[in-house]
Design a binder for these strands. Structure first.
Lengths: 205, 205
DNA sequence: CAGTTACGCTACGACCCGTAGCGAAATCTG
DNA sequence: CAGATTTCGCTACGGGTCGTAGCGTAACTG
């Protein structure tokens, strides 16, 4: 990961990998208990059994630390083949909703996005650590649907990439908005209605 | 508005309405210059030419103040009749994107949503002050489209309300995700592609 | 007029920030 | 093994913000 600070040459005492893991775990625990705004780096350090200075040697600040602590949560997402495009979409929507249901995920995700509006490096880091990694789901779901004949092939690669970006923003955006802004449950029923809308469109039957 | 603190009886010196306006304006200005995280209530007070204590007499904290300061921005949204459902959607998407392009709007909106994940009263306040107010756009757009014959009538009122909520989450969520998470421009081309997807669906022509 | 409430101002303890400086521990090199 | 190098835990610090209390004054009511 390009996540940490300058990091090391090859001589001298190496950085403790166990400390890294303990810090990230402590960060998630602190997010659950305190939320973003009341989380302090001093508290994280003492939870992790680490000196505060050690923390500052590895991360520039709260923003960077929390991105690293939370990014891994989104790697749990999978796209098992459920036999149809609609079923695949419903499945991933419910998985995504389950992650957003975890308190550390929702408070951290929105907060770092808010911070990123005034911090270009942070924005790039969110893109590479979280957003860009999960587009794999869209690509895989679409290629499956094309193999099934549910979706037409798209020849122009740049147009195909734009379509994938668009679908990703629609799916992820809708789920996030429903769960965090409207503050309503993303349950099976909502997922089914959303999928029906996405596949068939407003005008669809 | 149920926005301020306890507020007043009818005897004694009345609260200055001018101070209210000055505080909210100063809050927006501070958001532009400093962003959410570096905004301090002491700074807002001095910008507004008001004592810090006055500020605390009216708002419980940063969260509540910023919600009030930003909510008014979203009231600018309108839905002029452009003759077709697709054109109406494109129009409101671009308007929404223009608001999210303002630095005070994006930094504040995401930050208060993040805070609201651990603060039920704040979540309710966001719902009533911002989210619920703008659903009027969905309702109006749909009733126009139904009058044009572009969309079928929905008889069951609860089903109709659910559909409206769903569409709102999809539209607002997609625009927010595109603009703030993916950090890509919401321009005419994207709006057109999104509208085509929403109206026709993934399988659409 | 007296009663009541808002205002500006000052001051305060509490907390967190981010950094500096120290001696000790861990690892690589010759 | 000796020396160089880097990390580690610890303590301490100045600087900043928080949210509140207290006071005298201003504005409005009856």
């Amino acid at each position: 990961m390009p996540s940490r600070l300058p990091s090391a040459p090859r001589t001298g005492r190496p950085r403790s990998a166990a400390a890294d893991a303990a810090i990230l775990e402590a960060t998630r625990a602190a997010l659950v208990e305190l939320g973003w705004s009341k989380l302090t780096l001093g508290d994280v350090a003492s939870r992790a059994g680490v000196a505060k200075t050690t923390l500052y040697r590895r991360w520039a600040g709260k923003n960077e630390l929390v991105v690293d602590a939370v990014a891994v949560l989104f790697d749990e997402l999978e796209l098992p083949d459920r036999g149809s495009l609609a079923a695949d979409i419903e499945g991933v929507v419910l998985q995504f909703a389950a992650i957003l249901d975890r308190p550390e995920a929702k408070t951290a995700l929105m907060a770092v996005v808010a911070e990123s509006t005034r911090d270009e490096p942070l924005r790039e880091r969110i893109r590479t650590s979280i957003v860009e990694r999960q587009k794999r789901l869209v690509l895989e779901g679409r290629s499956r649907a094309q193999a099934r004949g549910e979706l037409p092939l798209e020849k122009d690669p740049t147009a195909a990439a734009r379509t994938a970006d668009l679908i990703f923003d629609v799916v992820a955006g809708a789920v996030v908005h429903r769960a965090l802004v409207s503050a309503q449950p993303v349950d099976e029923e909502w997922a089914a209605r959303f999928t029906r809308l996405l596949v068939g469109g407003l005008a669809g039957d």
